[in-house]
Amino acid sequence: MIFFNAFLVAGLFCFGAQVLMDNTKLTPGHITSIFVVLGAVLSFFGLYPKLIEFGGAGATVLISNFGHMLYTAGIEGFHEVGVLGFASGLLTKSSLAVVSAVIFAFIFALLFKPKN
C-alpha cells in the first residue's frame, strides 16, 4: 500500500505544479521555489511529517522536502544550542543534498561536455 501512496503523493504534487505552470506565466524556477516554501509551511503546520508517514519516499523525493528539512533542522538547532541554533543548525539536514549535488555536478562538468 505504501508503494501506491508514494506514487499518489509524488504524482499529485507534480500534477499541481504542472497545472500551476501551464495556467500562469511562472517558470520552473518559480515553481520549485514556491514548492520549497510550501514544504516549510506544511512542516510548520505539522503536516509534512504526516505526509511522509502516509506517502513515504513519495514525499521525501520532492523538492518540498528541502523546505521541511530546513524547518525541522532549525527547530532542532534551537533545542540543542539555543538562539544561535536557528542559524547553525538550519542546514545540517539539507547539507547532504546540496553537497552531493555540488560534488556530482562538478565532477560531471569536468568529465563531460555539453552536446550542443
Partner: peptide
C-alpha cells in the same frame, strides 16, 4: 532561488 527561499522560509518559520 531554491536555496535562497528555502533558507529564508526555513529560518523565519522555525523561529
Amino acid at each position: 532561488s531554491v536555496i535562497l527561499y528555502g533558507i529564508l522560509s526555513g529560518f523565519f518559520l522555525s523561529i
